[in-house]
């Protein structure tokens, strides 16, 4: 295991223990369950963000890919259980398609990742707001179909199993497949990877497509959790996904890191916020402490090598 990933897991453990000491009920299963559920949303978006960061890219289109998928789901699902498979397919398809376009723009047209994904974010925001008419139309305000909401019921909610599945998928993909080796090779040195026969462009396109898919998945789960889709649903997840990836020990320059660290990073971020909420720290204090915690973690294991 990568040294940074070990740090990330250690930090998550420390924050969780600190939470248990500071606020009673945090250590109980209902308390932990709540943290895990909220962390799973960050975990989904961060999975996609990590995949593109591994090849030195970045995905700024996550907020509105997520939001668009959520709206597609509710407007095609109409709250009916028998329409759910279709709605799910359309929502995930929309996310994958947005990611595919991102990937093609970055890899084949040579548009910088920041520009391509920022542009995609704007395009999807405009499309979502325009087509849904700002959710003021009659058939927009549908609730999530019941099976989706049931994912969050029970002592061990099925949503957490979905997260576990996603974690296994990403981990197996990155560590046990040729594709995974190619991802790390591309991230470490794209030129060397290209010269040794890695289809760098294809790998890049695949990763952006997956990131779109994961953002859509997060949107779907958020709809199930909240029971409804809202506009601006994805906005908090832009910077949160980047923070989770980095707190999880993934190098922002690419080539290093894995999903175990990112899971730890997501838990750390959500646990910090939850503990501060439980301590009744006002919002301004939460924001400031959140930023300072990230900064402290960066100083601990997110520094770049010295120039000599």
């Amino acid at each position: 295991m990568n040294r940074r990933v070990a740090y990330a897991v250690a930090v998550a453990a420390v924050v969780l223990i600190l939470g248990a000491v500071l606020s009673p009920g945090f250590a109980s299963w209902p308390g932990l369950r709540a943290v895990l559920i909220v962390a799973s949303f960050t975990g989904f978006v961060a999975a996609g963000q990590m995949l593109v960061v591994l090849v030195g890219g970045i995905d700024l289109s996550i907020p509105w890919v997520l939001n668009a998928a959520a709206i597609v789901l509710t407007t095609t699902g109409l709250g009916l259980a028998d329409r759910l498979p279709l709605a799910l397919a359309l929502a995930v398809g929309a996310g994958l398609l947005a990611g595919l376009v991102n990937g093609l723009g970055v890899a084949w047209l040579g548009v910088p990742a920041v520009v391509m994904t920022l542009g995609m974010n704007g395009v999807l925001q405009g499309l979502t707001l325009g087509v849904s008419q700002g959710l003021t139309c009659g058939d927009c305000g549908h609730y999530a179909p019941q099976p989706l909401r049931d994912l969050f019921a029970g002592t061990v909610p099925a949503a957490l199993l979905v997260w576990l599945g996603a974690a296994l998928f990403v981990t197996v993909l990155l560590t046990l497949t040729t594709f995974g080796r190619r991802v790390y090779a591309t991230g470490a040195n794209p030129r060397a990877a290209y010269l040794s026969g890695v289809g760098v462009k294809g790998v890049t396109v695949a990763l952006y497509t997956l990131s779109g898919g994961f953002a859509a998945l997060a949107g779907i789960m958020l709809v199930g959790y909240g029971g409804q889709a809202s506009l601006g649903l994805g906005d908090p997840y832009l910077f949160e996904s980047i923070a989770a990836v980095v707190v999880g020990g993934v190098s922002i320059l690419g080539g290093r890191g894995d999903y175990l660290g990112v899971v730890a990073g997501s838990l750390t971020l959500v646990a910090v916020t939850t503990v501060l909420r439980a301590q009744q720290v006002p919002e301004y204090g939460r924001l400031m402490i959140y930023g300072l915690v990230i900064l402290a973690i960066l100083f601990a294991y997110g520094r770049e090598r010295a120039h000599d």
Binding site: F239, A243, G291, I294, L298, G302
Partner: peptide, 10 residues
Amino acid sequence: ILTTLATLSV
């Protein structure tokens, strides 16, 4: 990008 992400929150 990380430094300014953290200070953005602060």
